[in-house]
Design a protein around this nucleic acid. Structure first.
Length: 599
RNA sequence: GGGGUCGUAGUUCAGUUUGGUUAGAACGCCGGCCUGUCACGCCGGAGGUCGCGAGUUCGAGUCUCGUCGGCCCCGCCA
């Protein structure tokens, strides 16, 4: 506990009532007595004249005390940064030459009549009033102080406004906000759950929701027709700059929607949210089928603010003598590349660095073809015929002084590595227009994806996603070819939301489970309640969930969602401020029937 | 689980490449002077487990190994 030195100088709030916020004081109050309260921002003690800036969430006002009353001056001399004070005094216009044009309230100042020190403060570990950087570790340990600073004050206000606009918009469109349980049942097929042991049911556990997926579908069965919730979700997976163990979704579900119904709703909502930062969003968003997105960008969440699209040059090597490529193609692989910006030269070392870069995405090597001074050069072995290299250059549309950077391998490796390389080059060469807001819908995702390890299909979105009507028959014959009524909304290469039209008929749900090799008994045990609900007149329904943290992050122009979450966790899921997680009493464990295994 | 990077005063950093006297700077903090400052100014002062632990060495902030922590990425995650 901090020692409250100088406590003999501390006062009580008493009957004082604040009359205005510091930053909102304007010239119309000149001549009036105002009462302001807040933190001492910076003291300028000139001896017989003391100035300090008083700060609250709205801004700053200058306060001044002279030596017309010595006790008051002496008291003013004792205040320090971050003391909490109340000031009663007359608001006066400053002399012309003492106006501070940097300050919104710079033409006026409060002349102290009464000063009350409501609390003292230790010297903060980092300055509250400056933008100087403190390490993130220190900022997180003293989060309540970091939150007092301007940037986070601004971000939390923005977040409030985003939530408010979202509620208003959805309410205006007929959506009800309905809460769903946090203590619930493990969701199938998704991320690792956070578990909560049950005291009353020895050996049983609740799971915190990864999303309210099943509940929102049940609410459609219940006839609410349109539901939304700004809701916390929990996933026990490793963290990233845009991933926290608990995060907030704008969860939406509606009855009788076409995909376009959902798209239009979300477009109007995002338009409204981006208006908060004076960005005019053009609607409708571009629609990009999944297959096309993968072919052109190698990812299902492309950043379309710049080019560098992938080019498939597999055909150039259809009869190549180069064994490595031949083998890759024979095994269903492909050879693709990115035409680098014209005029961009890559040294031997540059290429080594790029090869290292793509290696972390599983690509074993980076090949290249370069046209320079009319001649084609390439990193490929001599046995590769000139005609094949010629063909690559032709397919890539290679101009003078231009390189084509290629990866050969399985489609997954090629796409993963080239998508990363494309982003890397886009950033490195400054091709990304930071003022652009390129929204798009990626749709027509495959329903299923083959899992090599488990040797079965798994759901790409989740097991309740509806196949496209036209693809229903393929479910048995060619499950991998079935497309889903699933969609993601992407902004500048970041996935900010995703959803689907759900299965509302039990027969189809059974067929999908069958394709997923979830046997009926298992299905019954894990989410029998949903299957049962589908038997009681479930209407066609579907929806989406938006990542609120990511959207606010983008609106705030931050690069980590920690900057828009009041109390975030570190990359190892620790709360540095309150030191969670932490061991608990043996007594608590016993009540929960939990025994720790050897640590 | 793996890779990268960082860790030195309250804070932000320099010093580490090439081991060598008492580990520096700025801001902040404390004291003094100062009636128009607003990044106030001037004078003086205090403040260090160089993340932690081993090792190499006559000698380690600096080299080696291990470990802990922050951040970024892969795997994981919609």
């Amino acid at each position: 506990m901090c020692s409250l030195y100088r406590e003999n100088l501390m006062h009580q709030l008493g009957d004082l009532e604040r009359t205005c916020y510091c930053g909102e004081i304007a010239e119309d109050l000149i001549g009036q007595t105002v009462t302001v309260m807040g933190w001492v921002d910076r003291v300028r003690d000139l001896g017989n004249l003391v100035f300090f800036d008083l700060r609250d969430r709205s801004g700053i006002i200058q306060v001044v005390t002279d030596n017309s009353e010595m006790a008051r001056l002496e008291l003013a001399k004792t205040v320090r940064s971050e003391y909490v004070v109340a000031v009663v005094g007359q608001l006066l216009k400053r002399d012309e030459e003492t106006i501070n044009p940097e300050l919104a309230t710079g033409t006026v100042e409060v002349h102290v009549e009464e000063l009350r020190i409501l609390n003292t403060s230790l010297t903060p570990p980092f300055p509250i009033n400056e933008d100087v950087s403190a390490s993130e570790e220190t900022r997180l340990r003293y989060r309540y102080l970091d939150l007092r600073r301007r940037p986070l004050q601004r971000n939390m206000l923005l977040r409030h406004n985003v939530a408010l606009e979202t509620r208003n918009h959805l309410s205006e469109h007929g959506f009800y906000e309905i809460e769903t349980p946090f203590l619930t049942k493990s969701t199938p097929e998704g991320a690792r759950d956070y578990l909560v042991p049950s005291r009353l049911h020895r050996g049983s556990f609740y799971a915190l929701p990864q999303s309210p997926q099943l509940f929102k579908q049940l609410l459609m069965v219940s006839g609410f027709d349109r539901y939304f919730q700004i809701v916390r979700c929990f996933r026990d997976e490793d963290l990233r700059a845009d991933r926290q163990p608990e995060f907030t979704q704008v969860d939406i579900e509606m009855s009788y929607p076409r995909e376009e119904t959902v798209f239009a709703l979300i477009e109007s909502l995002l338009k409204r949210l981006f208006a908060l930062i004076d960005v005019e969003v053009e609607t409708p968003f571009m629609r990009l089928p999944y297959d096309e997105s993968m072919a052109r960008y190698g990812t299902d969440r492309p950043d379309t603010r710049f080019g560098l699209e992938l080019v498939d040059v597999s055909e150039a090597f259809s009869e190549t003598p180069f064994e490595v490529f031949r083998k890759i193609l024979a095994e269903g692989g492909c050879i693709k590349g990115i035409p680098a910006p014209v005029g961009q030269k890559y040294s031997r070392k540059d290429l080594d660095v790029l090869a290292d870069f793509i290696r972390q995405y599983g690509a074993p090597a980076l090949s290249w073809v370069r046209r320079e001074e009319g001649e084609l050069r390439s990193s490929m072995p001599k046995m590769v015929p000139a005609a094949e290299i010629e063909r690559v250059a032709e397919l890539a549309g290679l101009g003078e002084v231009q390189s084509f950077l290629m990866v050969a391998g399985t489609p997954k490796t090629v796409h993963d590595s080239l998508a990363a390389l494309r982003l890397h080059l886009g950033q490195k060469h400054g091709l990304i227009d930071q003022t652009k807001h390129n929204f798009l819908w990626v749709h027509a995702f495959p329903l299923l994806e083959w899992d090599e390890d488990e040797e079965r299909f798994t759901a790409i979105h989740h097991p309740f996603t509806s196949p496209r009507d036209a693809d229903l028959e393929l479910l048995d014959s060619d499950p991998g070819a079935v497309k889903a009524k699933a969609y993601d909304v992407v902004l500048n290469g970041l996935e900010i939301g995703g959803g689907s039209i759900r299965i509302h008929q039990q027969e189809i749900q059974k067929k999908v489970f069958n394709a997923l090799r979830i046997d009926p008994e298992e299905a019954q045990q894990r989410f029998g309640f949903l299957l049962e609900a589908l038997c009681y007149g479930a209407p066609p329904h579907g929806g989406i969930a938006l990542g609120l943290d990511r959207i606010v992050m983008l609106l705030a122009k931050e690069s980590s969602i920690r900057e828009v979450i009041a109390f975030p966790k570190t990359a190892r899921a620790v709360d540095l401020m309150c030191a969670a997680p932490s061991p608990v009493d043996d007594r608590q464990l016993r009540e929960l029937h939990v025994q720790l295994r050897g640590l």
